[in-house]
Design a protein around this nucleic acid. Structure first.
Length: 370
DNA sequence: AAGTCGGGGTG
DNA sequence: CACCCAGACTT
């Protein structure tokens, strides 16, 4: 029963229609311009949704434009080399999305005649497409009446319905999806979904929502109870672990030593300088770790040089301090396995390979130095 | 149900 | 620093 969990105020059809009308009027005045809102091409809409998963609009915008220029159609994407796709994804993070996108493009060409499916079930069968993305593509591209729940709409719906329990987890998600479904119009679902999301992004913000600018406070249980800052209930925060890692730029006659990240590793499929956890404190101990780890990962023997730079960055729940050393090769030979290949790469070719952001920073640094 | 996966922007 | 971002997938 879709309305079982819905707040009392939203059980009345007239109430829901009034809410939608106010929301759409507000959206008409305040909607932002975005690259993917200028097209109805299902391929581009799907691409934008994958790109926007856990990624800000500001970050995705420029990447989207460049990506579409490189792969204008699903056929272009399906025919592309995965390395090219990863290269275009560089800097966006969650690189599994790029691999899934590429795999899904092949499925769409092979099984759907190059057309994005219209129905939620078929969309969800594609790699990287969950219930949110399926609903987004179906409603935005085809105006199918499918609900969406992502971080914005989840927050808006929790507040509208005055849902005080934990929203992450089975019961909470059921409630939110039921509310999304209950409010969904039978026509114009795409615009309505966009409007609800936009309200969450611009007005119904995580902290200190601008209720004075909100078009639907009359329908909002959280506003009525003064609970806007208590709803939705925040998830337990994950604790961050500090990690120290080392990476080495090994040079040999104008080339540098790279290895490709193996399946199951972080940054799978992308290229990186030899990189590993660093345990030792003293310079001699570190020096030994560099020699041993480079040898183990690549088969190459090195003579470590000075510290080139230190980069601090975060990867999900890890806070990483990365020490980057220079070194020169003294012997050994590259060993590539099935899972991970190793190669000596000319500096001029670094621009063609997909690198992690840290590896790209180092590549830029050593390329400028010459 | 909990862990994993990136990286950058904001207060 | 803490928190947040058009989530999906694996264990």
């Amino acid at each position: 029963m879709a309305t079982d969990c819905t707040a009392e105020t939203l059980k009345d059809p007239k109430e829901r229609q009034s809410l939608r009308r106010r929301l759409l009027a507000w959206f008409g005045k305040h909607k932002r311009d975005m690259p993917w809102r200028r097209t109805r091409d299902p391929y581009q809409i799907w691409l934008s949704e994958i790109m926007l998963q856990q990624t800000t609009v500001a970050m995705a915008g420029p990447k989207f434009t460049v990506f579409v220029a490189a792969f204008p159609t699903v056929h272009d994407l399906a025919a592309a080399d995965e390395q090219q796709v990863l290269r275009m994804w560089e800097g966006l993070g969650y690189y599994r999305r790029a691999r899934g996108l590429h795999a899904a493009a092949k499925v769409i060409v092979a099984e759907h005649d190059g057309q994005l499916p219209r129905d939620v079930k078929s969309l969800m069968a594609l790699p990287g497409v969950g219930r949110y993305t399926a609903g987004a593509v179906a409603s935005f591209a085809y105006d199918v009446s499918a609900p969406i729940v992502e971080t914005n709409t989840q927050r808006v719906l929790a507040r509208l319905t005055g849902y005080r329990d934990e929203v992450v987890g089975g019961a909470g998600q059921r409630h939110i999806w039921n509310a999304a479904e209950a409010l969904l119009p039978t026509t114009g679902a795409g615009t309505y979904n966009l409007a609800l999301m936009e309200l969450g992004a611009l007005v119904c913000k995580p902290s200190d929502p601008r209720c004075d600018e909100c078009p639907v406070t009359a329908h909002c249980a959280a506003f009525a109870g003064g609970l806007q800052n208590e709803i939705p209930k925040l998830a337990a925060k994950v604790k961050v672990t500090a990690v120290r890692e080392g990476t080495v730029v090994v040079r040999k006659s104008g080339r540098v030593l790279l290895r490709q990240r193996a399946k199951g590793e972080r940054w799978e499929g992308m290229w990186d300088f030899p990189r590993f956890a660093l345990d030792g404190e003293g310079p001699l101990f570190v020096r030994r770790e560099l020699v041993d780890n480079v040898r183990e990962q690549t088969g190459v023997d090195i003579e470590p040089g000075p510290l080139l730079t230190t980069i601090k960055h975060g990867v999900t729940r890890y806070r990483i301090t990365l020490e980057c050393y220079e070194a020169r090769a003294t012997g050994g030979r590259v060993k590539s396995t099935d899972e991970s290949s190793v190669r000596w790469t000319p500096l001029a070719e670094l621009g063609d390979l997909p690198l992690s952001v840290t590896a790209r920073k180092i590549a830029t640094l050593i390329t400028k130095q010459g």
